Computed example of a mutant assay.
Amino acid sequence: MKSISPAALTSFVPTGTLRVGINLGNPILANEDPNTKNLYGVTIDIANEIGKRISKPVQLIPFKTAGATVDAVKTGEIDLVFVAIDPVRGADISYTPAYIQIEGAYMVKSSSPLKANEEVDLAGNEIVVGKGSAYDLYLTREIKNAALLRSASSQAVVDDFMSGKGNVAAGVKQQLESDAKRYDGLRMLPGRFMVINQAIGIPKARSNYEDTTTYLSNVITELKQSGFVSDAMKHHNIQGAKVAE
């Protein structure tokens, strides 16, 4: 594979260390060991592989939400981030092709009359969603009649929902299912309301960002074709997501 040009590498890694934003708001992509505080997951494996290929040390910088990682890209605090492809974020971020596809789903209380995703966008319904998440951005564009109630993070959605906020919870299917285990009387609506394409993003504010994006796009394509991404998903026991085509 063609290597990254010296000029692109200098603008990509200006400090000499590849600073990678890790979004802990999506457990499919990354997690933190509660005891050691070590980060692990598919995105960490990919970040370390990129560091190895460009012969640069990698600094993993954890964030609680995707929105916080995007803000850090805009301010130049990080060089690379793993986020959902979204046109709003695309104003500041240059994306590679997707490496993983994740489903966004709705959850309701067992007593809810709602039975299908199509019934959610009705006047009177209130959807709880993590502020600044890919689901928030998507639903802000798509929801016409229901109201959106924003939690501080994706992890807070179910707790807020169970404390009386809204009548529908929205987010990563696996995150909702995992959080719901702490409570009784919840059910998922069948299917999904969106498919989220997760990709690598870099700041457009950097010079030569087009060349860097091309290089990283080639890396991602190779990691998908070689089985690296699927092997990482199996290693970390990721369910409900698939390698993007």
Rank of each mutant, 00 (worst) to 15 (best):
V108I: 09
D45T: 10
G130L: 05
T10M: 12
V168P: 00
Y106D: 06
T221Y: 08
V88A: 15
R206Y: 07
L149H: 04
K109F: 06
N35Q: 13
Y209C: 00
V83A: 13
A199C: 09
L139D: 01
K37L: 14
I143P: 00
S178T: 14
A134F: 04
D45I: 06
T65Y: 07
K144Y: 11
N35C: 06
N26M: 09
A91R: 13
T140A: 06
A8S: 04
N197Q: 15
L149Y: 07
D45L: 12
H236T: 03
R187V: 01
G25P: 10
I100Y: 03
D121G: 11
K2E: 13
R89V: 15
A170G: 05
E126Q: 15
V13C: 10
T15G: 07
R150Q: 15
F161H: 14
P34D: 09
S163G: 08
I100S: 02
S230V: 09
I78V: 15
I54V: 14
T43Q: 08
G16R: 02
Y209N: 03
H236E: 09
R150N: 06
L114T: 02
R150G: 08
R89A: 14
I61G: 11
Q59E: 15
R182H: 13
K56H: 12
S133R: 06
G132I: 04
S5N: 03
A205N: 12
E32W: 00
S111P: 00
I44Y: 05
